[in-house]
Amino acid sequence: MEIINFSNGAVTSKEELRELVGFPHEHVIKKEISIIDEHCKKFISMSPLFFLSTSNAEGRCDVSPRGDRPNGIKILNDHQLVIPVRPGNKRVDSLMNILENPHAGLVFLIPGLDEVLRINGRATVITNEELLDDMGGKAPFIGIGLDVEECFIHCSRALLKSKIWSPDTWQDKESLPSGLDIFLAHLSINGVEIKK
Results as ranks from 00 to 15, higher is better:
26 E>M: 15
86 R>S: 00
136 G>P: 01
141 F>K: 15
2 E>K: 07
79 H>K: 02
50 F>R: 15
3 I>Q: 11
90 K>Y: 06
43 F>V: 09
14 K>C: 11
61 C>N: 04
64 S>K: 02
46 M>C: 08
189 I>Q: 05
127 T>F: 05
32 E>R: 15
139 A>V: 03
164 I>Y: 12
48 P>Q: 15
3 I>S: 13
118 R>Q: 05
29 I>C: 11
21 V>F: 13
191 G>M: 02
122 R>C: 11
29 I>E: 08
121 G>M: 07
87 P>H: 04
73 I>C: 00
149 E>K: 15
13 S>F: 08
119 I>S: 04
20 L>W: 12
151 C>D: 02
184 L>F: 02
116 V>S: 13
126 I>W: 06
143 G>V: 01
174 E>C: 00
34 S>W: 14
2 E>H: 11
77 N>I: 03
175 S>M: 04
155 C>N: 09
129 E>W: 02
28 V>F: 14
35 I>M: 08
148 V>E: 06
25 H>Q: 14
137 G>T: 10
32 E>T: 14
139 A>Q: 12
41 K>W: 13
84 P>V: 00
75 I>S: 02
164 I>N: 05
98 I>D: 03
166 S>D: 11
120 N>Q: 13
70 P>G: 05
111 P>Y: 10
191 G>S: 01
15 E>N: 11
10 A>G: 10
108 F>I: 00
160 L>H: 13
38 E>S: 02
60 R>V: 15
151 C>N: 12
5 N>C: 11
17 L>A: 12
191 G>T: 00
52 L>W: 09
138 K>D: 13
126 I>Q: 11
44 I>S: 10
68 D>Q: 10
8 N>Q: 14
182 I>A: 09
181 D>I: 01
125 V>M: 11
194 I>R: 13
31 K>S: 12
185 A>R: 00
166 S>R: 14
90 K>W: 06
110 I>K: 14
78 D>S: 01
7 S>W: 13
17 L>C: 08
188 S>R: 09
7 S>P: 13
40 C>Q: 10
9 G>S: 09
157 R>Y: 07
28 V>H: 12
112 G>P: 11
173 K>A: 10
28 V>C: 10
143 G>F: 02
160 L>V: 11
73 I>N: 03
188 S>Y: 07
22 G>C: 14
87 P>K: 03
141 F>T: 15
172 D>L: 09
52 L>T: 05
45 S>V: 01
11 V>W: 06
51 F>Y: 10
144 I>M: 08
106 L>F: 04
4 I>M: 06
47 S>E: 07
114 D>W: 11
90 K>T: 01
103 H>C: 08
103 H>L: 14
174 E>I: 09
150 E>H: 15
159 L>K: 15
108 F>C: 04
190 N>H: 02
107 V>Q: 15
115 E>A: 10
100 E>Y: 02
90 K>D: 13
10 A>P: 13
135 M>Y: 10
